[in-house]
Design a binder for these strands. Structure first.
Length: 571
RNA sequence: GCGCCCAUAGUUCAGUCGGAUAGAACAACCGCCUUCUAAGCGGUAGGUCGCAGGUUCGAUUCCUGCUGGGCGCGCCA
């Protein structure tokens, strides 16, 4: 079952389906491997099976019976495939008009649907280390993508601000505090020191647990100190989110669910799901070797307990179509158990919850972890990237005013880092390497931004911006390189929908690389032949090429926006 | 031991709801700045798609086994 997102794809599928035997929505419409074969291809395998004929026979019959339509000019059979050629004028019109009006992607797809996305969600009192970039950028990209498709998105930062870890910090403060001025670096150092000390003296662990128990019991001193740690941490995190352009809809940490936990535990006990094991409260789950723990033998709650409460809160408040947890793969077991538990509690919406997992960011081939202290900070990598871009601009574009340089250097530097984290599939581990993370050429964020800046530069030089197709003679777009660009634009809707369905932003990242490459090939033709430039002599041709350029620019801008990457007009 | 994930060019990665000659980028080599920004473009070279079976008209894609690597497996999150 596939839904087609452009009228051309629908027309091609219908032309084949009209021959009988299969529904248009069951036909895959794709681009042929080589442009000389055609613009859209439909394989006749399924339909041939249904009709008990050979695929080539069916393809031949469909091609022979084909009559041109407003959108499709011709159909030819090539073995088991029917290859269609599009009517170029009509296609240019649909695709350019759609891109200029931001309506290439089906923006009504998510109408009336809500998607909760839990992403980022760092622990307070710890650094935002570089490895946090992965989940943060993937989650933000998904939020932006679903928004573009018309979904109501609730971006949630489920701050890790509760649990034994925070008791340990209070214990560390009691031993070695106070620390002034207080910032996340100081808090993180306390945490690392406490973990190191705990290795020497296991009794410290109990100290940490005792402090968390005091915190959970509402001890005013513990609460006040915890609140301060939380405020200091959030201020730091927010600075980073601002740089990344992230604005959460909900910042509700684990602590927010604390009042819900006693009644939740009562309800679970009453349901008969829970049992006691070695002093802890657990729930046994089908096909799981280990139970899920909800309360320690000390009587304090756990991550899983608060996750149940948070899931119920999200359902009660948002009635989500999907509830996504963008969290690293290491927590796969936890989420599998959590969702099973929600199901056993009778929540029919449990199967709308998805763990959107991603691979590790490794540093020097090691897993980075705050508690070990072997971290590279996100801010430090940002700073390196900005400096690299600044140097490059000084060489390439020395006339750019200094204030503008600072802004663009940040946009491009951050863009490079964000793109490097979004380009591989989620599941892949990525090794941190500064040159790779801040790649400025080849398949990179800056390459996309550069292509966008070139489009913008052409528009600037042309004077008036193209806002519509009135009076534009699209028949002037006669070059195959221009057509190749339009064909690529035609694939944007499907790329966006696929990215959203699979929660895979890299689909968009790779689509944009292809679009930028196609545009760059076209653009470069003008280097050798002035008649092939967008800003050529002939006014009517210039208008048509400007419209196509504007469509590319808009699509790059929109696509980069979905990835959470800025699209500067010059660089 | 059990579970989950990964394995494609020297390197980093696309392609995998089975389908037409497996694509980019980086690195190497050769070209293109009187050029709308060369952060670019063209070309050459580089692949037994980890191994072995199986299903199929057809497998890099699905299934099984194996090898190699990663992660996880009750009181952290």
């Amino acid at each position: 079952m596939a839904t087609h997102h452009t009228p051309l794809h629908r027309a091609a599928a219908e032309a084949v389906a009209a021959h009988g035997g299969i529904a248009a929505t069951d036909l895959k419409v794709e681009a042929p491997p080589r442009p000389e074969l055609g613009d859209l291809a439909v394989g006749c395998f399924a339909i041939a099976k249904a009709r008990k004929q050979s695929p080539a026979e069916v393809a031949g019959a469909i091609a022979a019976a084909f009559r041109p339509t407003e959108l499709l000019a011709s159909a030819t059979a090539a073995g088991p495939f029917v290859n269609f050629r599009a009517q170029r004028d009509a296609t240019y019109r649909w695709v350019i008009d759609g891109a200029l009006r931001g309506r290439l992607v089906p923006g009504e797809l998510g109408a009336g649907k809500t998607i909760c996305i839990d992403y980022g969600s760092p622990n307070i009192s710890k650094h935002l280390a570089y490895h946090h970039i992965r989940g943060t950028t993937i989650g933000h990209a998904l939020a932006q993508t679903f928004r573009a498709l018309g979904y109501r998105v609730v971006g949630i930062n489920f701050l890790g601000d509760w649990g034994t870890t925070h008791g340990m910090l209070l214990a560390a403060w009691a031993r070695w505090g106070p620390v002034e001025p207080l910032d996340v670096t100081a808090l993180n150092a306390l945490y690392v020191r406490f973990n190191a000390a705990m290795k020497q003296d296991p009794a410290l662990e109990q100290e940490g647990r005792a402090w968390f128990k005091r915190l959970e019991a509402g001890d005013p001193d513990a609460r006040a100190l915890w609140q301060r740690f939380r405020d200091v941490s959030w201020a730091e995190f927010q600075g980073v989110y601002d740089i990344l352009g992230i604005d959460y809809d909900e910042v509700r940490g684990e602590s927010a669910y604390e009042p819900d936990l006693p009644p939740l535990l009562d309800r679970l006990a009453a349901s008969g799901l829970t049992s006691e094991s070695q002093g802890a409260l657990v729930v046994e789950l089908p096909d799981e070797k280990t139970p899920i723990l909800l309360r320690t033998r000390d009587g304090t709650t756990l991550y899983a307990t608060r996750d149940v409460a948070a899931a119920e809160y999200r359902w009660a408040n948002f009635h989500f179509t999907r509830s996504l947890y963008v969290v690293d793969r290491g927590q796969a077991l936890h989420f599998r158990q959590l969702f099973k538990l929600l199901g056993r509690m009778g929540h029919a919406w449990a199967d709308r919850c998805e763990h959107v997992q991603y691979g590790l960011v490794k540093i020097n081939n090691q897993r980075s972890a705050s508690r070990l202290g072997n971290v590279v900070l996100m801010r430090d990598v940002f700073a390196i990237a900005e400096t690299m871009v600044k140097d490059l601009i000084a060489q390439i574009n020395p006339e750019m005013p200094p204030g503008r340089v600072a802004e663009v250097a940040r946009q491009v530097g951050i863009g490079a880092i964000v793109f490097a984290n979004l380009a591989p599939q989620r599941d892949k581990d990525v090794d941190f390497d500064i040159d790779h993370a801040v790649s400025l050429e080849g398949d990179s964020g800056p390459y996309l931004q550069y292509s966008h800046a070139r489009c913008a530069s052409i528009a600037r030089k042309a004077g008036a911006a193209v806002t519509g197709l009135d009076g534009v003679d699209l028949g002037r777009l006669a070059h195959d390189a221009e057509w190749a660009v339009a064909r690529r634009l035609l694939e944007f809707p499907d790329a966006v929908v696929r990215a959203a369905d699979a929660c895979e932003p890299h689909v968009i990242a790779h689509y944009l690389l292809g679009l930028a490459a196609e545009f760059s090939r076209w653009y470069t033709l003008g280097n050798g032949d002035a008649a092939l430039r967008v800003l050529c002599e002939d006014a009517a041709t210039r208008r048509a090429r400007l419209a196509l350029t504007a469509a590319v620019q808009a699509t790059l801008r929109d696509g980069l926006g979905m990835l959470g990457i800025a699209a500067p007009d010059e660089m």
